[in-house]
């Protein structure tokens, strides 16, 4: 699971959970991979992200590097910055671990890079 995917996951559909975002991450196993860098892609994707969630997720699993906690101005033209974002978004792969609902603590296991978000009938 890439952190870009984590950025769009919520546990709001759990009974009694009002926001369910962002999910916590407990990473037991992380794989770093190499993905071709496309500066335009990253620049266009940044406005679609929840930046605080990305930063916190990366920080919580020890891969925030030099990524600033608040989004910088004029990031579109800052190649070095875009490379850092690229790495955190697409090259850090959580292979095994858990996602955690911030309100209920419900765990969603990640195995072989695939988070299991399925709920039991009595949870919805």
């Amino acid at each position: 699971m890439k952190l870009l995917t984590h950025n769009m996951l919520t546990s709001k559909c759990l009974k009694g959970v009002t926001v369910g975002y962002p999910l916590g991450i407990v990473a037991k196993d992380i794989k770093l991979c190499v993905v071709d860098f496309n500066s335009e892609f990253i620049a266009r994707i940044i406005p679609k992200l929840d930046w605080a969630t990305l930063w916190k997720a990366a920080d919580s699993i020890g891969h925030v590097g030099e990524l600033p906690q608040t989004l910088i101005q004029d990031f579109e033209t800052n190649e070095e910055f875009l490379k850092k974002v690229h790495h955190v978004l697409l090259e850090v792969d959580v292979i095994n671990g858990d996602l955690l609902c911030p309100e209920s603590g419900r765990k969603f296991p990640i195995n072989d890079g695939i988070p299991n978000m399925l709920l039991n009938e009595d949870e919805v």
Partner: peptide
């Protein structure tokens, strides 16, 4: 390179 999620429809997508 495809990220895969086990989920019912889009229940957990923000």
């Amino acid at each position: 390179n495809i990220d895969v999620i086990q989920m019912d429809l889009t229940n957990n997508i923000y």
